[in-house]
Design a protein around this nucleic acid. Structure first.
Length: 878
RNA sequence: GCGGGGUUAGCUCAGUGGUAGAGCAGCUGCUUUACACGCAGCGGGUCGGGGGUUCGAAACCCUCACCCCGCACCA
């Protein structure tokens, strides 16, 4: 391999897709058959089958891929199971919009034709997101790809529904539910979003039937007064004493409704202390209505328009138009006494933003408390660990106050509820397969419930339904329960909690042991990405421009925290990192000969200190990276590799190895050793990096001639005690400090890199003397000196300092001190004097000596010696 | 109202008891044969305010201020 085969500049587009296809064709994404290995399983949070990859997908799948690749390289039999979600409302909406453009509607088409259309649409779009995940480098096992409406998953859904029904945990009942008039379906409580807004509060007089007085009520929704069936006051409210039981006449409709007393509904402090009650269109009024057996009048229909019950002149009117009309009518009749500004939260549909209409409706529910209980216990016992832990209290808070889950949706796209009604006797049958006839009356006219299930119902089963449950399939046996779930905190309730509940109930085990809840990607200033602000980052565009590796690395290094502010400047920085890796490898490959690749492992005793140093450093990095990954700190892990590779390996080691590699110093044997170490460190670095930057690492690694056919199946580095070398770290550390100090002086005194000086070193012992005699070339090269003289008398004018216990003296042509340097010296002296004073105060403090750990006291003493020496040097050289 | 999180360099963020960190931005040098997507150097922070615990607090406790996010309510 010749380095000139590599371009000077790294071009990700040229290699990324080639490698993905290669890995897939070699079957690297599938688990191996080796039963001896420990296994690791993870399921994808299924994206919408018709969706496009957004930055949130890029984040979660990058993190999953890092874990998967790390585990795979670490010897685990690893499964990452991919798939997509049918996403009931979202998908149906998209297809309906398409139909609308053609002037069609699903109602006109009919259920079957519409579903056929959606399936076709799904077939056309399903590979979009799959291909995008591939571009990201996602190493999932496509042979196990699942879709929530697959036959197998549908069977699991029906099984679960039927079993829960017969256990009494699914029921059908009349209840007040959240209705979206635009989606024309019920939705669950967590699909409702509350938006703060400033609206109006209307104070309206309701006249008593006998005309003796009026009772003033307050409302934000005057249109619902058409459905009022009572007025409530607080039983202890003096203002309304004696009115309970009397009748008021509703303005406009002229209906008579009673005044009732209710201490639960009415807060005497709010508004006028009198409340109109519309049991059919308000959750609290509904409950009050039940308490007082009030009739329900549905005056708003499923499309959000006034119904026939609203009366002549209103029927067919949109609810907001009706509000305007009613306010006008009340105003002209004089019943509207006052309109106030009023801040309140309006309930909206999370999917389409339409204002929710509370409705009384017969729906299917999951009785959730019995399922929640063991799911709470599982997290409490840490059988399931939430990461970061702070999410536990949020989880408990929600689970302990959980409400029954409305699971029926008046949609067509989804899992149809396996309930059948007998036309003959009205019997309700819940069965796995459609019954032929009614077991109660023998009738054969059976109708299936028209509703489908909430999308999250099938998602809740994802970790086991995808593996073949309810069968005892091999995958269930091998890979269930899974190990880690990685997803956004925004679906903790929608998805994670429900998976834990269903998993425990149906398999007896939580579906995963660890849940990593990552933050949400935002723009560089922490703002939510939105089309209207124009700050949306398209991951595909970033991949096209800077490469998947750069995007992945950016996401990983930012992944801690609740908000992930993604800045283009950062991605550019990590694209530069990829380029750095490329060029460092180019340099290495210039010096690595073919025979070297097969050479035996390195003999430690033959290594130079600088070689032992870099091996020790990568060993430490290896230990830290593995530790960080094991606790899902992708930010720490990626940062460690970044710092090591760029600043230690490139900036220091390669520069220190150059004199030997380029033949300016040392024997041929030393050169071979330097080459081997260079190869070794590069190889380990690439393997450490591979989970983060799979493409570039593979491309380069192939040229190094490793034993394995791909870096994907090469072992992940683990720390090796034999590589650790404290002595080398100390010695090279001193050399680095000296080089830095000399560079500082050169810069301060206004010399350029062409000016060369002599350096004098005064060593304490023969061991130190021999080290600097042998390694002085490092100082000459990196600090650009003319000569290093050990244990010789420096000229009187030389700049002196003490570094790592070694006295140094640099001979500058003349003593040039710039004003800048004078200022800095003065400042440093000042700081050191403060530090010296506080240190002395500590050491003089008997409590410090007595109570602080001996190590800390010792450190403080050592530091004092350094400070004193440094001060002396600074004052002398001023 | 209930619960959670935050406030550290110009920007975005790490840092859970022992000498304040990173990246980016800024400034100054440098065509040093891997890389100008580079190299070297520099400046920049009373760690939101106050109190406490401790030999020692950015970190632990209390309190105040401001910001953010859930949940519930909102006639």
């Amino acid at each position: 391999m010749k380095a000139d085969e590599l371009d000077k500049r790294y071009d990700p587009a040229a290699i990324e897709q080639r490698w993905y296809k290669e890995w897939e064709s070699r079957g690297y994404f599938s688990p191996v058959e080796d039963r001896e290995r420990p296994r690791f399983a993870i399921v994808i949070p299924p994206p919408n089958v018709t969706g496009r990859l957004h930055i949130g997908h890029a984040l979660v799948n990058t993190l999953i891929d890092i874990v998967s690749r790390w585990k795979r390289m670490s010897g685990f039999n690893t499964l990452w199971l991919p798939g997509t979600d049918h996403a009931g409302i979202a998908t149906q909406m998209v297809v309906e919009r398409e139909l609308a453009r053609e002037g069609l509607s699903r109602i006109e088409m009919g259920r079957e034709a519409f579903l056929e259309r959606v399936w076709n649409w799904k077939e056309e779009h399903k590979d979009v997101i799959k291909n995008q995940l591939m571009r990201l480098g996602a190493s999932c096992d496509w042979s196990r790809e699942r879709f929530t409406l697959d036959a197998g998953l549908t069977r699991a859904v029906r099984e679960v529904f039927v079993r829960l029904y017969h256990e009494g945990l699914i029921y059908r009942d009349l209840a007040m539910i959240n209705w979206c008039p635009r989606c024309r379906t019920a939705i669950s409580d967590i699909e409702v979003e509350h938006r703060d807004q400033t609206g109006r509060l209307y104070l309206i007089d309701y006249q008593l039937e006998d005309g003796s007085r009026a009772i003033q009520i307050a409302t934000t929704r005057p249109e619902t007064m058409l459905g009022d069936t009572a007025v409530a006051v607080h039983p202890d409210d003096d203002r309304y004493e004696g009115l309970t039981g009397k009748m008021v006449v509703l303005p406009i409709s002229g209906r008579r409704v009673p005044i009732i007393a209710d201490s639960i509904l009415v807060d005497p402090e709010f508004g006028t202390g009198a409340v109109k009650i519309t049991p059919a269109h308000d959750k609290n009024d509904y409950l009050a209505g039940l308490r007082h057996s009030l009739p329900q009048m549905q005056v708003i229909d499923e499309g959000g328009r006034m119904s026939s019950a609203a009366g002549d002149g209103f029927e067919g009117l949109d609810r907001f138009e009706a509000r305007t009309l009613i306010v006008e009518m009340l105003q002209s009749s004089g019943a509207l006494r006052e309109t106030r500004q009023h801040a309140y939260a309006v309930a909206t549909c999370a999917k389409c933003d339409t204002v929710i209409e509370p409705m009384v409706s017969r729906q299917w529910f999951v009785k959730i408390a019995p399922l929640a209980e063991p799911a709470i216990a599982a997290v409490r016992s840490r059988e399931v660990t939430l990461i970061p832990e702070t999410w536990e209290s949020t989880y408990f808070n929600w689970m302990e106050n959980i409400h029954d889950w409305c699971i029926s949706r008046q949609l067509w796209w989804g899992h149809r509820i396996p309930a059948y009604y007998c036309d003959g006797c009205g019997e309700l049958l819940v069965t796995l397969e459609a019954p032929e006839s009614c077991p109660a009356c023998g009738g054969i006219k059976l109708r299936q419930d028209p509703d489908v299930l909430d999308t999250w119902f099938s998602s809740a089963l994802w970790p086991f339904s995808t593996m073949g449950w309810p069968d005892k399939s091999e995958d269930v046996e091998t890979f269930y329960p899974t190990d880690t779930l990685i997803t956004g905190f925004d679906i903790l309730f929608f998805w994670v909690a429900r998976m834990i509940m269903m998993g425990i109930h149906f398999t007896g085990k939580p579906p995963f042991s660890h849940v990593l809840l990552h933050g949400l990607v935002r723009d560089e200033h922490g703002r939510k990405m939105s089309k209207s602000v124009g700050n949306v980052i398209d991951p595909l565009e970033v991949i096209d421009e800077l490469g998947a590796d750069a995007l992945r690395f950016t996401l990983a290094i930012f992944s801690s925290g609740r908000d992930i502010p993604l800045a283009r400047s950062r991605t550019l920085g990590y694209a530069a990192f990829a380029n750095k890796i490329w060029n460092a490898s180019r340099f290495a490959l210039m010096h690595i000969d073919e025979e070297l690749k097969d050479a035996d492992s390195i003999m430690r005793e033959d290594l130079a200190p600088v070689e032992r140093w870099i091996l020790s450093r990568i060993n430490t990095t290896t230990r830290e990276v593995n530790r960080a990954l094991s606790v899902y700190r992708f930010d720490e892990a990626s940062n460690l590799i970044y710092q090591f590779f760029w600043h230690e390996f490139c900036d220091w080691y390669i520069e220190m190895a150059k004199p030997v590699l380029l033949g300016r110093h040392g024997e041929p044997a030393q050169r071979d050793s330097a080459k081997r170490v260079l190869l070794e460190v590069l190889d380990r670095s690439l393997r450490l990096l591979h989970p983060f930057m799979p493409f570039i690492t593979e491309e380069i690694w192939q040229k190094l001639g490793g034993v394995e056919p791909s870096i994907m199946v090469a072992p992940y580095p683990i720390p090796e005690e034999s590589l650790e070398d404290r002595e080398a770290e100390t010695l090279i550390g001193v050399i680095q400090q000296m080089i830095t100090a000399i560079r500082n002086l050169r810069s301060d005194k206004g010399f350029t890199s062409k000016d060369r000086f002599r350096l004098f070193l005064a060593c304490k012992d023969p061991r130190e003397t021999s080290f600097f005699l042998q390694n002085g070339y490092l100082l000459i090269e990196l600090a650009r000196l003319s000569e290093v003289l050990v244990n010789q008398i420096p000229p009187s004018g030389a700049h002196r300092d003490l570094i790592g216990g070694v006295e140094i003296a640099v001979e500058f042509p003349q003593k040039v001190v710039s004003p800048d340097q004078l200022m800095r010296i003065a400042k440093e002296i000042e700081q050191l004097e403060i530090e010296l004073a506080t240190g002395d105060a500590k050491l003089a403090n008997e409590f410090f000596i007595a109570r602080a750990p001996a190590r800390v006291v010792e450190q403080t003493r050592e530091r004092r010696v350094e400070i004193v020496a440094r001060l002396e040097s600074l004052r002398k050289n001023k």
